[in-house]
Design a protein around this nucleic acid. Structure first.
Length: 668
DNA sequence: GCAAGGTC
């Protein structure tokens, strides 16, 4: 009689075994997989999905198979975690009961079903659902076992199939028609393509933007101190209108109105993944780096699970005990200060999910336990955790109106009276504007009048941190994948830099897809899919219906693409060519382009063989032609991107070549 | 060499 418990990941297997066995569970290896054992029970952790959807091998060759054939092709399940699967099968032979204890969300349900399908159907199955791996939650969950929700798993499966079919068919189509094959392929997908479209859209707005000039009037007022006030109208679109007002202003003004009030600023809400990544961005981490660092902290037992949609601490979290642990750390003062409060009432965010608790520290680290990056992320998480229990900050806001010869000017002052949570969480700059002491009716000397000329600004480019938030708002991707999608755009050569700039290739791909494969370029595809998945989960429709309908939509897309092959190829190849143009040839003024010969890559003149001007390029790495231009040679700067390394800014390829020549001479 | 979603 053996009870087999299956969890989504190794760490939960370990914790659940510890809790249920009262710390007596022993770790054993089975076929290289970790299994936790105590009398009558064995607990094994999967590694997320243990199988993957794919096409049968006869569809593997991109050039031999028409991408359209993928639409109706069979979809098979390929084991991806062979060691875990064989351990699982061995364990099932002795099992008289199986409990699925994967994460409490849709993918968790599917991961559980994937495991069950590999095991004999004769064993009784149950399911437990928990939102935090605390003693209280786990014990409660195991006392209230439920059934597997096969409809919920089907919903996840529909998503897998639709993503595979659309993604693979369109990826191959776009790669084949642009002749970008091998490791340079171009990709298309339900999440990455709308994300890229967003960037291309913004870039077009910036290109089309025409700045409008406007004017503002500032006056410097003086009593015992000085302050600057701005004309109440704000922006003047006509300079003459502002000039008339300026000419009317005399050397004296009156402080006609003074309002002062206190404003409290609530502490921040607990960290979910999105907010964590945004906060990490503000202190200089890219989302991918922040995520990797957080994962390290998590696997080493310093913080809770970093992939969560939850912004409300579970009731079972013992905050006081947790904060008390920090009285023996360098956060001692902060912890002691919080512990003085009679009640520790945390803030709560709008999103309350079932998957995991908000990100919080679970044990006390010292600086020497961690590397610099880990420490900075750990400190951020600790301070955020503390801040969610802290008091509001209190500001004094002052609004004054100054009248000068019938014209009104405003000035705002703000002063931080009580730091509150800001002491614990000092990451936002405190912007105080201190006005001199003033009283209503007071006479002021006007010592300076400034007619400032400004112009309207184009919308800003997205930075990585902004995009994570934007993706969440649009429903694109998940807490676990959003940062990967951004990395993917870089890896494909669709974007460069931070803030992100799309390449001409990206423009061409989006232009083509928007014309012929509209659904895949819109976040709406995900919204519709989500609604369909809800219906599948509720048992209102079948998974097969949803997948079939989606296949038919893709058929329509391919009919359109098929008759426009020439237009598609032309658009794509023009875009690709654009990205390879480095500038004008200094010898003959033709375009200089990135070319390839048997000896490797180089920059060559398009007027070859009449002109043989050329410049060398590094042998490996993806070459990105940036929008920055060399003042001396007029050539675009070049960046080299190698997987797993920082981008190398080669600068102007002509300057680079000349320097290299110079250094060679110095050597010999 | 395809997607997106888990996890390491």
């Amino acid at each position: 009689m053996m009870h087999l418990i299956i969890t989504e990941k190794h760490s939960t297997a370990k914790r659940i075994a510890q809790i249920l066995s009262g710390g007596k569970a022993k770790q054993k290896k089975l076929n290289g997989a970790n299994v936790y054992e105590y009398p009558d029970t064995k607990v094994i952790g999967l590694s997320g999905h243990i199988v993957n959807v794919d096409f049968p091998p006869e569809y593997n060759n991109w050039s031999d198979v028409d991408p359209q054939e993928l639409i109706g092709a069979d979809i098979i399940l390929v084991p991806t975690q062979k060691k875990i699967i064989s351990a699982l099968r061995k364990l099932a032979k002795e099992a008289s009961r199986i409990t699925i204890a994967t994460d409490y969300d849709r993918e968790g349900e599917l991961i559980g079903v994937e495991a069950l399908r590999l095991l004999p159907s004769s064993i009784p199955i149950d399911r437990v659902r928990y939102s935090a791996i605390t003693q209280a939650d786990i014990i409660k969950a195991f006392a209230n076992t439920t059934k597997i929700d096969f409809n919920l798993a089907s919903a996840g499966e529909a998503r897998q199939k639709i993503d595979l079919v659309w993604g693979a068919a369109l990826t191959r189509f776009i790669s084949l028609s642009s002749r970008r094959l091998g490791k340079n392929f171009l990709s298309v997908g339900r999440v990455q393509t709308p994300l890229l479209a967003l960037l291309v859209e913004r870039e077009k707005e910036i290109d089309a933007f025409e700045p409008t000039p406007y004017w503002e009037i500032y006056v410097t007022c003086k009593n015992d101190g000085e302050f600057v006030a701005k004309h109440v109208k704000g922006r003047f679109l006509e300079k003459s209108e502002a000039e008339i007002i300026v000419s009317r202003l005399g050397p004296k003004g009156t402080l006609s109105k003074l309002e002062q009030r206190r404003k409290t600023q609530a502490p921040p809400v607990p960290f979910d993944t999105t907010e964590f990544l945004r906060a990490a961005s503000a202190i200089g981490f890219t989302p991918a780096n922040a995520m990797r660092t957080a994962e390290n902290l998590y696997t080493n037992g310093w913080i809770s699970y970093p992939r969560t949609d939850n912004t409300v601490y579970p009731k079972s979290l013992d905050a006081r005990a947790l904060i008390k642990m920090f009285t023996e750390s360098e956060f001692l003062d902060y912890a002691a200060s919080l512990l003085k409060k009679k009640v520790l009432k945390p803030t709560r965010g709008r999103k309350e999910a079932t998957d995991h608790p908000p990100i919080h520290p679970v044990s006390v680290a010292n600086r020497r336990d961690l590397n610099t990056y880990e420490w900075r992320i750990y400190e951020l998480i600790v301070r955020r955790f503390f801040a969610t229990f802290a008091s509001p900050a209190v500001w004094e806001r002052t609004k004054v109106t100054v009248e000068i010869d019938g014209e009104l000017f405003n000035a705002d002052g703000s002063r931080l009276l009580e730091e509150g949570w800001r002491w614990y969480y000092p990451y936002y700059a405190v912007k105080e504007t201190i006005l001199p002491s003033l009283r209503e009716g007071e006479l002021l000397e006007i010592i300076e009048v400034d007619l400032a000329e400004k112009e309207t600004q184009p919308p800003p480019r997205y930075k990585q941190g902004d995009l994570i938030k934007k993706m969440e708002d649009l429903g694109l991707g998940t807490k676990s994948t959003r940062h990967e999608m951004i990395s993917k755009l870089y890896a494909r050569g669709y974007v460069h830099g931070n803030p992100l700039r799309p390449t001409s290739t990206a423009h061409a791909v989006i232009e083509t897809l928007e014309k012929y494969a509209t659904p895949i370029t819109k976040p709406d595809m995900t919204c519709v899919l989500e609604k369909d998945m809800d219906k599948i989960a509720e048992g209102m429709i079948d998974e097969e219906n949803v997948v079939q309908e989606s296949r038919e939509m893709l058929d329509v897309v391919f009919e359109k693409l098929d008759v426009s092959m020439e237009d598609v190829s032309r658009t794509l190849q023009e875009g690709l060519r654009e990205d390879k143009i480095v500038g004008k040839c200094p010898d003959c003024n033709s375009d200089l382009m990135i070319r390839r010969s048997r000896r490797g890559r180089f920059i060559g003149c398009t007027n070859y063989p009449n002109c043989s001007f050329s410049l060398p390029l590094p042998k490996s790495g993806r070459i990105i032609v940036t929008s920055k231009k060399c003042e001396e040679h007029g050539l675009h700067h070049v960046k080299i991107i190698t997987k797993g390394r920082r981008p190398w800014d080669l600068g102007c390829p002509h300057c680079n070549y000349l320097e290299w020549q110079k250094s060679k001479k110095e050597l010999f």
